Simulated assay, not measured.
Amino acid sequence: MGRLSGKSAIVTGAAMGQGAAIARAYVAEGARVVIADVAKDEGQALADELGEAAHFAHHDVSDETSWAAVVEDANARFGPVDVLANNAGILRFGDIERMGRDEVDLLFRVNQLGCFLGMQAVTRTMRKNGGGSIINASSVEGLAGMAGCTAYAATKWAIRGMTKCAAMELGRHRIRVNSVHPGMIDTPMTRVHGGDAAMEFGASRVPLRRVGTPADIAPVYVYLASDESAYTNGAEIAVDGGVTSTHAFGG
């Protein structure tokens, strides 16, 4: 306990699933957390559950103005932001030949642009405050390919690349930037694409023979937010049960 004592964090996409697990873990370790999400009811409920150490902010990651407001609010409420967990993201499947431009644009705006705007929005605060940690949510689809995921994978490869560049650019300001690459995680975002059948199929492709849970992901975010990772910068950490170690991945 207390690994994040005194730290102020923003977690995007924090109302449910993986983001909610990260927010809970941050508060448990002593951080004060802004739960940033478009899901008002779920986000406020989580903030109420976590008490005074948490605050819900309605936030659209694809909106530059919204980013400015949430960072300003976090700075005023909990002190200068030390940690940004750029967790918000959406998943859409679609064949190259048939996927609509509107879905492709939405993936790019939320996953890729949202991540960039988040890094941009916190950099000034972190630089003035002597450093910080930015943690970008990529995916195993940002390490390899999978049929039916071209547009989604494009955003996750982009996050991987942006993380590397930002780590080089911001390191001199003691701002660390790393990416996390979850495999198939049992969350509302993934369950909507096939439910139990999808989970069972996903588990069959994992060397550990199970899909992940948000509780498998949150500890990595705690490590990267903490001072324990003071020399970890530009890293990409796969939390996937071994999927990316197999040649079968992306088949």
Rank of each mutant, 00 (worst) to 15 (best):
A153T: 11
R205F: 14
R176H: 06
S133F: 00
E200G: 14
P188I: 08
A215F: 04
V140F: 11
T187W: 01
G195T: 08
N136W: 01
V177F: 07
I175R: 02
M189F: 01
M199A: 13
E200F: 00
P207W: 12
K156C: 11
W157M: 07
C165L: 12
G202T: 03
G194T: 07
S139D: 06
A203W: 03
P182Q: 09
E169F: 05
G183A: 12
L208E: 14
P219A: 07
V220L: 12
H173C: 10
Y152D: 10
G145W: 14
H193P: 06
G194A: 06
V206D: 00
T213A: 15
G194I: 04
D196H: 03
G212N: 06
Y152N: 11
R160C: 05
E200S: 09
V177E: 00
V192N: 07
T213M: 11
H181F: 07
G132A: 09
E169Q: 12
E141C: 13
A198Q: 12
V180H: 05
V206T: 14
Y221P: 07
P219Q: 11
I185G: 02
T213W: 06
R172I: 05
I185K: 02
A198I: 04
I135N: 03
A197D: 13
V192K: 15
T150V: 15
G148I: 09
A203F: 03
M189C: 05
L170H: 05
A167Y: 05
D216N: 10
N136K: 00
M146G: 14
G202N: 07
I217P: 02
A151N: 06
M199F: 07
F201S: 13
H193F: 14
Y221N: 07
S204L: 10
S139K: 05
A147G: 06
V192Q: 15
C165D: 14
M162D: 04
N136I: 00
A144E: 08
H173E: 15
A144R: 15
S133Y: 01
G171H: 03
A137C: 07
R210V: 06
M162R: 00
Y221L: 12
V140Q: 15
G142E: 04
A215W: 12
V220H: 02
H173A: 15
T150H: 11
T213K: 15
E141P: 00
I185S: 03
S204M: 09
T187V: 01
F201W: 11
G132K: 03
A147R: 12
E169V: 00
I159W: 01
R176F: 02
G145M: 14
T155P: 10
A158P: 06
C149A: 13
P207N: 10
A218N: 10
Y152P: 08
A147N: 12
V222W: 05
F201T: 09
V180N: 01
S138N: 01
H193R: 13
L143E: 06
G171D: 07
I217W: 03
G194H: 10
T150Q: 03
S139C: 14
G195S: 14
R205P: 08
R209N: 14
N178I: 01
C149F: 10
L208Q: 15
D216Y: 09
V140H: 02
R172M: 05
S179M: 03
A151R: 05
P219I: 08
A158R: 09
L170A: 06
Y221T: 02
M184E: 03
R191L: 01
V140L: 13
